[in-house]
Amino acid sequence: MPQAMRDIKRRIRSVTNTKKITKAMELVSSAKLRKAREKLENTRPYFNTIVRSIHDILASTDGIRHPFIEKREIKKSAYIVLTSDRGLAGGYNNNVIKLAENLINDKKDTSTIIAVGQKARDYYSRRGYEISGEFLHISETPEYYDAASIGNLVVEMYREKRVDEVILVYTHFKSSISFNPKTLKLLPAENIKDDNEIKRTTLIDYEPSPEEVLGYLIPKYVQSAIYGAMIESSASEQGARRNAMKNATENAEEMIGDLKLSYNRARQASITQEIAEIVAGSEALK
């Protein structure tokens, strides 16, 4: 019996240590989540404004031809997949990757991946996907500068006709307990305008020329969309990690409770046994 007790005690200690770690990680990600949410709130107006304004502009570009807004036959697609660098975030990375995987489906050969975050890079390189860009260690503190370099890369690829569409896969931050993986088609930008809204009749002037303005605006839109998505993803990552760690801590607590119960039982059993032995011994002496 003392043997069993020692084993249980050891397990309790080990679970307690694990609990300490998960608790600490929970606190860390709570703090990071708060910061990420602040950043998200500061960025959303910019993101919404730029989407709305590009929307307005594209709604009144009838008759303007520009490579960025024209559909062409899709021979190759680029997927920008936003994941985290580190794991232990519950289903966060898995969900994004699964969504991208569903999109790619059987078109693996005609797809190319731009991996943001180690998890996406590892996943796709292990499975032999073509990777045309990887951006690591930026997912926790997204900067506009990083979004701009990703944006420039895809715009360049699109311009050189190495890819015919660009799709962004990220996680939308709804609230601190709910996040959805989402996709957004960045290029061709034509899809932004075919919302069934009323055709605008106002004529907009473009200076110096519509083509030049669109040539400037659309890469800008791509960069901002990536930036917005990076911020959303990073807030979601922290939220997902916090939830995962919270659950882990709760599970550890439950486990400790169970173990304590069986420890006490074993202790009681060993005491009972000892008493029984003593009583039996004194009985024998009589």
Partner: peptide
Amino acid sequence: DLGILRDHTPLVTP
């Protein structure tokens, strides 16, 4: 330089 007052014609420019 571009000075914008109220009721400027709709315009987009970098």
